[in-house]
Simulated assay, not measured.
Amino acid sequence: MSLERPVSPDPYVLLPAAPAFTVTSADVSDGQPLGADQVADAGNTSPQLSWEGAPEGTKSYTVTCFDPDAPTPSGFWHWVLVDIPADVTSLDTGAAAGQLPGQAFHCRNDGGAKGFMGAAPPPGDQVHRYFFVVHAVQEETLGVDSDASPAVVSFNLAFKTAGRAILHGTYRH
């Protein structure tokens, strides 16, 4: 069976517009291949992220990693970290596996775990894009619990996002 298919669109251009701010990483270069640390069968480690310039009135952040190129109709969520306090503007490499800031918590990823899951495209598939997004949230809590699916988190973000900072890496197995 062939996995040949069209490249999925950038999922964030399909959402309601939100002001942009800046996210950078010591581990991920925008548009470039991910390092081994961010690959599931190698390091499986969440990347360092730093952000600045969030809109006035930001009360918390949500960080996600989404692969729109997975061979599913709904893509694949690799990381969903919710309710990061507004005064936090960075996460260290491997933060997903350690002590989270404030009342922040993980929701389950599409692999079923609460934490970060590295890149894991099928062997021989097209290049996959991994969108690391910091969502500035207009409320101190997104209003979900750790059992929320990534779709429910995304639905809530559609109504509570004050801004988005986007960085994406790529990977091909």
Rank of each mutant, 00 (worst) to 15 (best):
M1H: 08
S2G: 08
L3Q: 09
R5N: 11
V7H: 01
P9N: 03
L14A: 09
L14W: 05
A17T: 06
A17L: 08
P19C: 13
T22C: 13
S25G: 09
A40D: 01
D41I: 08
A42L: 11
A42P: 00
A42K: 15
G43M: 14
N44V: 12
S46T: 05
Q48W: 10
Q48K: 15
E56Q: 07
K59M: 15
S60D: 06
V63T: 03
C65E: 05
D67R: 12
D69W: 02
A70D: 00
P71W: 00
W77R: 06
W79E: 03
V80N: 09
V82R: 12
A86D: 12
A86R: 11
A96C: 07
A97V: 06
G98A: 14
G98F: 12
L100C: 12
L100E: 15
A104F: 11
C107D: 03
N109T: 03
G111H: 07
A113F: 10
F116P: 01
A120F: 08
D125F: 01
Q126A: 10
F131Q: 06
H135Q: 13
H135P: 13
A136M: 09
V137G: 08
Q138T: 08
Q138E: 08
E140C: 10
E140M: 10
L142T: 04
G143H: 11
D145N: 13
A148P: 04
P150C: 02
S154V: 07
L157R: 08
A158V: 05
T161R: 00
I166L: 13
H168G: 03
R172Y: 02
